[in-house]
Design a protein around this nucleic acid. Sequence first.
DNA 1: CGACACCTTGAAGAGGTTCAAGAAATGTGG
DNA 2: CCACATTTCTTGAACCTCTTCAAGGTGTCG
Lengths: 264, 264
Amino acid sequence: MLKAPHSQHQTVPPAPTLEAAKVITISSQSIKVACSNCNLRELCMPVGLSKNELERVDTMVEVRRKIKKGAALFHNGEAFRSLFAIRSGFFKTCMATEDGRDQVTGFQMAGEVMGLDGIVNDHHTCDAIALEDAEVCVLPFERIVAMSQEITSFQRHVHKIMSREIVRENGVMLLLGSMRAEERLAAFLLNLVQRLHTRGFSQSELVLRMTREEIGSYLGLKLETVSRTFSKFAEDGIIAVKQRHVRILKRDALNDLVNRADLN
Amino acid sequence: MLKAPHSQHQTVPPAPTLEAAKVITISSQSIKVACSNCNLRELCMPVGLSKNELERVDTMVEVRRKIKKGAALFHNGEAFRSLFAIRSGFFKTCMATEDGRDQVTGFQMAGEVMGLDGIVNDHHTCDAIALEDAEVCVLPFERIVAMSQEITSFQRHVHKIMSREIVRENGVMLLLGSMRAEERLAAFLLNLVQRLHTRGFSQSELVLRMTREEIGSYLGLKLETVSRTFSKFAEDGIIAVKQRHVRILKRDALNDLVNRADLN
DNA sequence: CGACACCTTGAAGAGGTTCAAGAAATGTGG
DNA sequence: CCACATTTCTTGAACCTCTTCAAGGTGTCG
């Protein structure tokens, strides 16, 4: 019915520099690595830095850190020291209430930054869990602060990353507050595939790295509802689903669902 | 049944400096004002600034701006130039989708900062509407950037304000994603009264500045559900409600609702 | 005082949840 | 590499919470 899309892995597409870097990193986890020739630079770093500034920025990454699938990059309550830029792999962030309820607040992929929640009270307020084996660049916050004061465009970049997260969360609030199940899932799929496309993957095919339950938590739905909605989309010919492999057949139909004009 | 709490106005409690400042501002809207002797300083500004730094920070506020009840401080799509610190009054921020749906993303009161969403794309992504006559300090973002580079503790403060907003929105996502109507409203009331208490108001009595519909939008509920839930709380003796006047009678009951251990 | 916005309450209905069972995939240990 | 245990996913049916629709009441402001 639907073959696994071999062409899509949710790690970074192969590139000479990446492969070289990987060999180094495998041999030792604490080797410093340069942002200046990282193929994710355009996602992580500001553009238009001078050669000098770029060299300076290369001191940003303290170490790389590998996280096994299922392991935590950081936990709620843990002291905040660094931000983390995802180099490869896929994460979820989630909050838990005292009573054991638990809410996925986001899914993060290569080039995105995690840990911003920790700044305000010097400790993290959520858990970051790897949904597949992953590697992150550890960015000590004190270095980020220092560099912001030296390089104006870097400061600007940090502000934008934080503002972007605020805007993203506003969008999720809109979704959770005013959309119905089908609309939520449609918006979710479109958002995921769009971000993957930015990273060089297909516009129409993706592999979910999270369970139905995690999707449900993020979207404020139960896992059964997520599953049923997937099935309904498949019946309607909008997508093809086989487990975590999803192919988008009618992008317009998904768009229409999100922007339907008939609901107040 | 429930008398209007005369002791509580959701503007700043009277203070000599405030009254003086008001007289000045009324006479002209473009007079510069000093943060250093503003009675909201501890909410807006970092602590532990030297006398020198304080003087420097006093140049932060370009002007004060008055906004009439119902008017917009800024609109979605408008160019971003400044952040706004609320001096008095009460705001809502809301997003609208193309199809006319509309989601309240927050309520803001004295000492809180608005406009952070505009940083990432140089234009605002939501509307900020005054729910009562209000006054804000206009903080040109370029000045904030410049001052961040000069005064470390100021930069730190800006980071914290943005991080705090991210954490707040995480909390709203938890609320919208996993709580039921009663829990949402309980959390909402506790949050409001706590913030008001920080500003010197009662711990148990408040005047809502927004309609049932706006509360509902924020909480992902319809206005009828909000109204019914208020009525239920009143029946249960948890609160006393008369229109927009709310008195909290059993704070513990509200707390228990938010932290109920029996729901997964 | 009258018009308008806002709030309350009831009754019917829909969308999503809960509970349950079974199927498919994944991981583990022999 | 296969068998078994575990996790994940799907689907059905009953139930429940919240919504929708409707009507009337209350408060506010010119």
